[in-house]
Amino acid sequence: MKTVEAIKDEEKLLCMKTYLQSRSARDYCLLLLGMNTGIRGNDLLHVHVEDVMNESGHILHYLQSSLYTDPPVFLNDDVRQAIKQCIQEGSLQSTDYLFKSKKTTEPITRQQAYRIINEAAKQADIEGSIGTHTLRKTFGYHAYAKGIAISLIQKRLHHATPAETRQYIGVDRHTSQSIKLDVNL
């Protein structure tokens, strides 16, 4: 198995988003949910509509998951909008998988998720190995770059040590980051 890296270039991420958004609400939602939450690939594929939408049809602010409670998985506005479009475009019911296959009632396979992410990366001229873990690593890298404490990222990624998390996201203890802690009251 090849080792994949985080996508550090935000312009390339934007290119991937634009490409997938023009093709499929489901595939775009997969990319956004993966890189904005740090959820494991297999867990991501097994999210049900009822995990992200309440009975009255409103998209929740937090993923309803027993696996991700500390810290809970926040769904930002862009992710929530992508989820809403995915549900509408796919005519999904509350018991359906969010990333439902077009051929069956099951979720898309890991191989299909890999193909989706890989094709978007090719369109963005991203070189190197890309896979489903790329989304998770991208989440961790950008969370760290934006000033989120390594201990919180470690908890989200379910790692044993901060050193494991740093290695996973591709930064070392001595990597200089210009972190801006701005509460903006």
Rank of each mutant, 00 (worst) to 15 (best):
R80N: 07
T161L: 00
V52G: 02
L31T: 09
Q177I: 15
I179H: 12
N184S: 13
I7A: 04
V183W: 09
K8V: 08
V4S: 12
P71L: 05
Q154E: 06
E55A: 08
P107Q: 03
M1S: 15
D182Y: 12
F99H: 11
L30Y: 11
K102S: 15
K12F: 04
L14M: 08
I179V: 15
S101D: 13
T37C: 06
K2L: 12
N184Y: 11
M53T: 01
V171D: 07
T3C: 07
K12D: 05
G147R: 12
P72Y: 00
C86N: 12
D51Q: 10
Y144S: 11
A6G: 01
D27L: 05
N54M: 01
E106W: 06
L32K: 10
P107M: 09
Y168W: 10
Y19V: 01
V52P: 02
D9Y: 06
Q21N: 10
N184E: 09
Q123S: 14
E164Y: 03
R136C: 10
L30A: 07
A163T: 10
Y62Q: 05
K17H: 13
Y19K: 00
K180M: 11
T105W: 09
E50R: 15
Y28G: 00
Q112P: 03
L152Q: 14
H159F: 08
I153W: 05
E119D: 15
F74E: 01
R40P: 00
R115D: 14
I59E: 01
T69D: 07
L44A: 05
L32P: 02
P72Q: 01
Y62W: 04
T104A: 08
Q111Y: 12
L135D: 08
F99C: 12
F99Q: 11
R23T: 03
A120K: 00
Q167V: 07
V47M: 15
V79S: 14
